[in-house]
Design a protein around this nucleic acid. Structure first.
Lengths: 149, 149
DNA sequence: CTTTTTAGTTAAGCGGGCTTAACTTTATGC
DNA sequence: GCATAAAGTTAAGCCCGCTTAACTAAAAAG
């Protein structure tokens, strides 16, 4: 596949640069909140996927129900999560971000965007247009690929 | 800044999709190796930055010298790292990936690339070209931005 | 209506990462 | 040359995430 040969290098270089930045930023943010990665992960899931039960947590992160319960307990104690009885199934709990939890998560996401948006701000209009187009294509392709699987 | 208004949404969507995939993949890889994140992080640093002393580790990850020493010890025990006396400063140690360590890291990186390269493979030639150009621009801009700082 | 399955909790125990503190060894500053 | 600083190591102790095991309560199956 000749086209791959061409695109491989820029693809990899970009991923290296981007991942490096992102990982660092993410770790710093985690540290600044005082929360652990697993705890932050749960908040993120609640943000992106909305309300879920405890079972949703243990499945998503491949941990035991006990582990999920304990992690959630801490987040509830810290005031980031709300744990209410599910009216349709009284065994189950509905987990939701509190206002504080939502704020924390959106600050984290915000911070994640910031570097890249600053990057885009430094580009001229034409480059910006190219990148807009390219990222739209990529996002679309990623969605399609995930669907197929 | 009118151009930001336009580019913000695709930028964010792409980042969300990409980060989500990458993080998941990275966690899975970590689990598959049996190594912890901090340990993998050290191997990655050694891969990208080359030989360094223990002090390099503690600075990079913001941990105490004691913590770095203990982490490195485990990696040496596991056969991923080589710890040799620095001939120029006999207090210091030179850390290097062993063959096994290098193999492990490059497999991890490989896996990180795979999803995105598959993505690119599914695109037509024209889209591919656009993406190549866009990523090259972005990488270049990122380098410049990091230099300035 | 009883049995079984499902959702979640609690407690005990393990291993990991991290810190501080005390220490050894080698290099530097004066 | 002697005091001080720097590079690592080791040990004690803390918190954390995770697992297994034992349990409660509610729903589903028969």
């Amino acid at each position: 596949m000749p086209k791959s040969v061409q695109i491989t290098r820029p693809l990899r270089e970009w991923m290296d640069v981007f991942m490096h930045r992102s990982m660092r930023g993410w770790n710093q943010f985690a540290k600044s909140t005082g929360l652990s990665m697993p705890q932050l992960g749960i908040l993120m899931q609640l943000h992106y996927k909305g309300t879920t039960g405890l079972s949703g947590i243990s499945e998503r992160f491949n941990i035991s129900a006990a582990a999920a319960s304990q992690l959630v307990e801490k987040l509830v104690q810290s005031g980031y999560l709300e744990r209410a009885e599910d009216p349709n199934d009284r065994r189950a709990k509905n987990l939701r971000l509190t206002a504080g939890g939502a704020k924390l998560v959106s600050e984290g996401i915000q911070e994640r965007y910031r570097w890249m948006e600053k990057l885009a701000d430094n580009l001229n209009l034409e480059d910006n247009k190219k990148i807009l187009e390219a990222l739209t294509i990529l996002t679309e392709a990623a969605r399609k690929m995930d669907e197929k699987k």
